[in-house]
C-alpha cells in the first residue's frame, strides 16, 4: 500500500489498520515457526530420498543434489526380490482391510446399541467402553500366548484378526447413530415392510456415512501405529507390515550401510499415500470430532 493511499484515509481508520497489522504479526509469526517445525522433517526426507548415498552425506541435507529419486525407488523395489512391495501390500491388507471390516462390525454393533432396546444393552456398552481404556499394547503379549497355544503365531491372521476389534469405533458409532438416524425413519421403513438388516444397509449406513469415514480413519491409525503386535507375533519377513520391515532394516544399518538409503526412500514411499489421503479426508476428522457437540 502506498503512502498516498494511506494518507487519503481518515486517521482513525489508519490507526485501526495499524493495530490490526500489529495484532496479526505475532500470531502469523508463531504459525510460520511451527509450519517450519512440522514440515522440515518431511522436506528433509523428500530431499534425502532423492540423493545417491554419496551425496546424501556430502551435500546440503535440505537441498537437492542430482535428482536420483527414481533410481533409488527402483533399487528399493529390486532389493531382495521386491520384499518392500510385499510389505506395502501387507500393510494395505492389515491396515486397510482391518479398518474397513472393523468399521462395518463396529457400526453394526454401535447401531444396535443405539437403536434397539434389548436386555443387556447397557452392560454390553459399558464393557465395550471400558475396553477403550485398555491400551492395545497391553494385549499384544497375551494375544501372542493365545495364538501360540493354537500354533497360529507368525501367520497373517494372527495380526489381522485382533486388529479388527476397535471398541472406540463402537462407542462412536452409537453416538453417531443416535444423532443421525431418526427413529421415525426406521418406523416408516418397518411399515413399508423393510427388514431391519435391509434398512440398516440401505438407509442407515447412508445417513451415518460421514461418521463411518471418521471411525474408519481412527481405526486405520490405531492399526497402522500398533507396532508391538506384529513385532511380537511375526518372525517371517514376508508377513511384515511396512513399519516393521523398515524397523528391521534400520536395526541392520550398521552392518549393511546400503540399507540406510533404502530405509529413507522406503519411509518416504510408505508415508506419501497416507499424507495425501489424510489431507483429502481431513474434513471428516473435524466433522466427526465435532458431531457430538453439534447435537
Amino acid at each position: 500500500m502506498t503512502t498516498a493511499v494511506k494518507a487519503a484515509k481518515p486517521t482513525a481508520v489508519k490507526a485501526a489498520k495499524a493495530t490490526a497489522i500489529k495484532q496479526r504479526t505475532l500470531p502469523m509469526l508463531v504459525m510460520a515457526v511451527f509450519t517450519v517445525y512440522f514440515l522440515t522433517p518431511i522436506w528433509w526426507l523428500f530431499v534425502g530420498a532423492s540423493k545417491s548415498s554419496e551425496q546424501f552425506t556430502s551435500t546440503n541435507p535440505l537441498w537437492f543434489a542430482d535428482f536420483d529419486l527414481f533410481t533409488n525407488i527402483s533399487d528399493l523395489v529390486a532389493y531382495r526380490e521386491g520384499v518392500f512391495l510385499r510389505w506395502l501390500l501387507n500393510s494395505v491388507l492389515y491396515t486397510g482391510g482391518a479398518a474397513l471390516l472393523g468399521t462395518l462390525l463396529a457400526a453394526m454393533c454401535g447401531y444396535a446399541l443405539a437403536k434397539y432396546r434389548f436386555r443387556g444393552r447397557e452392560l454390553i456398552f459399558n464393557v465395550v467402553l471400558s475396553g477403550v481404556l485398555v491400551p492395545a499394547t497391553a494385549l499384544a503379549l497375551p494375544l501372542f500366548l493365545i495364538f501360540s497355544k493354537v500354533d497360529a503365531t507368525n501367520t497373517f491372521w494372527s495380526v489381522f484378526l485382533p486388529s479388527l476389534v476397535n471398541p472406540f469405533g463402537v462407542y462412536l458409532a452409537r453416538i453417531y447413530a443416535t444423532a443421525s438416524v431418526p427413529d421415525e425413519l426406521l418406523e416408516a421403513a418397518r411399515i413399508d415392510g423393510s427388514g431391519e438388516v435391509r434398512t440398516f444397509f440401505k438407509v442407515s449406513t447412508r445417513l451415518m456415512f460421514p461418521a463411518l469415514v471418521t471411525i474408519f480413519l481412527f481405526h486405520f491409525v490405531a492399526v497402522w501405529n500398533n507396532f508391538l503386535l506384529p513385532l511380537i507375533m511375526l518372525s517371517d519377513e514376508r508377513l511384515f507390515p511396512v513399519t516393521l520391515g523398515l524397523y528391521t532394516w534400520n536395526t541392520q544399518v550398521n552392518q549393511i550401510p546400503e540399507l540406510r538409503g533404502l530405509v529413507i526412500v522406503g519411509a518416504l514411499l510408505s508415508i506419501t499415500p497416507l499424507v495425501v489421503a489424510f489431507l483429502l479426508l481431513q474434513r471428516f476428522w473435524r466433522n466427526g470430532l465435532g458431531a457430538g457437540a453439534v447435537k
Partner: peptide
Amino acid sequence: FRLAFFVPYAVPGVIAAIMWGF
C-alpha cells in the same frame, strides 16, 4: 496451517522415530 500441522499425524511412530533419529 491446519493441513500443515496435521501432516505429521499421518507418519506412524516407527517411521517418525527413524526420521528424527537420522
